[in-house]
Amino acid sequence: MVRTSSRLVVSLLCAIVLVVTGALAAAAHVVLRPGSATQGAFTKLTFHVPNEQDTSSTVKVKVVFPDARAELIPAAVAQTKTGWKIKINKVRLDEPVIVEGHEIWEVVRSITWTAVAGTAKIGPDQFDEVSVYGGPLPSVGKIYFKAYQYQSDGQVVAWDQIPSDSDPHPAHPAPALTLTPPSGGTAQKSGMVGAGFAGDTAVRLTAAAENTPAERDESPSMLAASLSVAILLAGGMGVGLLAGRRRWARTRGNDA
């Protein structure tokens, strides 16, 4: 009986190792938090950037915005980051996008954070975050932001693969944002939108970002959830095995 229980424990532990290993691999990706937002809204988006290299540091992070017309984000500003220089690259559209009656000719194409101080870097086995605040978010189901990590040894780690039917789980997926319709099924109305585009968009966006609490991702991360499950399973197996051994010991004592 004890031998059978031991085999079961070994099998379950192997399964747990696979779960946790998969979670660690996923945690090594550049991911976007929160992973979902409301269509038509302004929101803060934070990119979690882990460095999975053993001998080099991440010294530059570049985030590329969606460029399909239906996926454009008309305006965005970057959150300041101590020790990092920020460059916002904008492009002029062939035709303007209309937001609450205002023509928008220029949109953000990419934002780059470059370390300028000696300690401003993401070292091996470390992670950091970069954030943007923008909107209004497009009325589509999902958009992708391609991300690139520039390493101190010259290597560039690209997170720019878009899932497809032929490759639903690419090795280097681009950070994704799921967009849901606002309650009522119509585009969210915000006084910020019209006012923002009527004047200096960057200034008003910055003010809005400072006065609006950042959206928090209340759901546990994949890694934390997997580790919690692993701990609970391991604890349960330990209790079960101990109880089995006690029952086996009592049975042998009674037989004697």
Rank of each mutant, 00 (worst) to 15 (best):
P213W: 09
D54M: 05
N211E: 09
V19L: 14
T55I: 07
V91K: 13
G35N: 02
A198I: 15
R7E: 08
M192Q: 03
P96S: 11
Q126C: 14
V2H: 11
L32C: 10
G238T: 12
V64Q: 02
A23P: 00
V91A: 12
T180G: 03
P182F: 10
H169Q: 05
V49W: 02
V64T: 15
S57P: 13
W84F: 08
G40E: 02
I231Q: 01
L242S: 06
K62L: 12
T206D: 04
W113Q: 08
A41W: 00
T119I: 07
P66C: 03
S190G: 13
G118V: 08
A115K: 04
G141P: 05
S131R: 14
G244I: 09
V157A: 10
A23V: 04
K60Y: 13
P170N: 13
V229W: 06
S226D: 03
H169G: 08
H29S: 11
L18G: 08
R247M: 15
N211T: 10
S6A: 14
Q161C: 04
W113Y: 12
I88R: 10
S183C: 03
K87M: 13
G196E: 07
V116A: 06
V20Y: 03
T186I: 09
P34G: 07
D153H: 10
V108R: 00
K44E: 14
D165C: 12
R252L: 09
A26P: 02
V157C: 02
S6K: 08
L242H: 04
Y148D: 09
N254G: 02
V59T: 09
T206S: 13
V31D: 14
A147C: 13
H169Y: 14
P163L: 07
E215Y: 10
P163V: 08
A147S: 04
T201F: 03
G22H: 15
K146P: 00
L179R: 02
G244Y: 06
R246E: 14
K189C: 02
A68K: 06
G40T: 05
D255T: 03
K81Q: 09
A75G: 15
A207M: 05
T38Q: 15
S190E: 09
E106H: 05
G244M: 01
S36N: 06
A158I: 02
